[in-house]
Write a protein that binds this DNA or RNA. Structure first.
Lengths: 218, 218
DNA sequence: GCGTAAATTTGCGCGTACGCATTTTTCTTG
DNA sequence: CAAGAAAAATGCGTACGCGCAAATTTACGC
């Protein structure tokens, strides 16, 4: 086999993880986020409540991870898939936009749910940090190995930018925003689509990527 | 008075906040981090346990914030204090290094304590994110107001880089590290001083700062 | 000063997060 | 394939985080 037969254990773990994810999301949609207890999710997935907490550190994480799934790995793969010729900055940007845009009907509904609760919103934003490790690996591959630090910093910066883009995107245009924007004294872009927001947030990092690339191939 | 008389309330809040901080750190040092309950901290500060949680969302936050204090504001002030002529990237880097280097004897002891518990370590690393808002403000001031997004992204990237530097700095050189570094296939810098780590982590972002500055003054 | 509106503190209660010790399941080795 | 090692699931107990509503404190106008 291509994958070493370290399999049955790993498979089962992934299975329960996914079962918990699905159960969490389904129940949250059915009865509303506040009417779901950990006990319910665990029961629906066929495990004990204690085991639930071996997989997810909070109730919000499980719900959110049903939407996030393995987006991190897909982003890294998408970057690696781009031809070696293109600018690294572009490769990363397009990969991120691509993976955050392929959103199905189910995900859309889930996002609506997420915006309704602050705790869920925060948990969702935190998932952006998860792209750092795989991004670090794939960026390091395109740079000199001696600049492993650089890859890490760039990946973390991308994660931070993505977080900012998401934060602005799913912000409820409430009263606080108007006051805040006036206090800042400037006119801010009201809303905009997610791809636009992602590109705008990532753009300032492009020069850093360019410089890193220059260092490896003078 | 120089400060508008919005005072007694605000002052009292700050007082209790600091009392909680100090009590938390003192008790943690005295009896060890695991032998301190929130009830103890609250009592030592003369408030109810419930009030404690109005100030800090976790026991770790209180302890850590005694070390962190108002470092965020000081960093922003340090940046603002630099003459307008110097490169923005340099101003930020030096301000960060400066504020993380001025560490007293008390802080050093506290850091030793923090490294002993994973939860404390994580809470400490999370405080790095706190520099984003003030940094955003001071960076935006040096850039065109139209590029408010840029300032935010740069500030968040700095925060991410600082976090990485701190993470590597207070990592316990345990068994996991050796294995990991071998798996990565490269030779990694073993330890290094904190200023060095901060500079190294921030260096890759310099081109992004330069580019942002260019846009404002062509 | 005095009364009223606003902000803060507090007690209560529920569900959660996790360390620890034990049991059950999966992997390895001869 | 059996026995032991390794890993994961489970039960239990404790402390925590926080929403909510009542009580207390502070601020402001008259």
């Amino acid at each position: 086999m291509t994958t070493p037969p370290r399999g049955l254990r790993e498979r089962k773990k992934q299975a329960t993880r996914e079962a918990l994810r699905e159960a969490a999301l389904r129940l949250a949609v059915e009865r509303g986020p506040d009417q779901v207890r950990v006990e319910d999710i665990a029961e629906a997935a066929g495990v004990s409540p204690r085991t639930y907490n071996n997989y997810f550190a909070s109730r919000e994480q499980a719900i959110v991870s049903a939407v996030t799934a393995d987006r991190e790995a897909r982003i890294a793969a998408a970057v690696a898939a781009r031809p070696a010729g293109v600018r690294l900055a572009d490769a990363v940007t397009e990969a991120v936009v691509e993976q955050y845009t392929n959103t199905g009907e189910r995900e859309h509904k889930a996002l609506l749910l997420i915006t309704t609760r602050t705790a869920l919103r925060d948990a969702f934003l935190d998932t952006a940090a998860g792209i750092e490790p795989p991004l670090t690996a794939v960026i390091a591959e395109r740079l000199d190995d001696a600049e492993a630090h650089t890859a890490r910093v760039l990946a973390a910066s991308v994660a931070a930018a993505v977080r900012i883009a998401l934060e602005g995107w799913l912000r409820p245009a409430g009263k606080a925003e108007a006051a805040e924007s006036l206090a800042a004294g400037g006119l801010v872009v009201p809303s905009g689509s997610l791809p636009d927001r992602l590109r705008t947030a990532l753009a300032p990092l492009a020069p850093a990527f360019d410089a890193a690339e220059q260092h490896t191939q003078p």
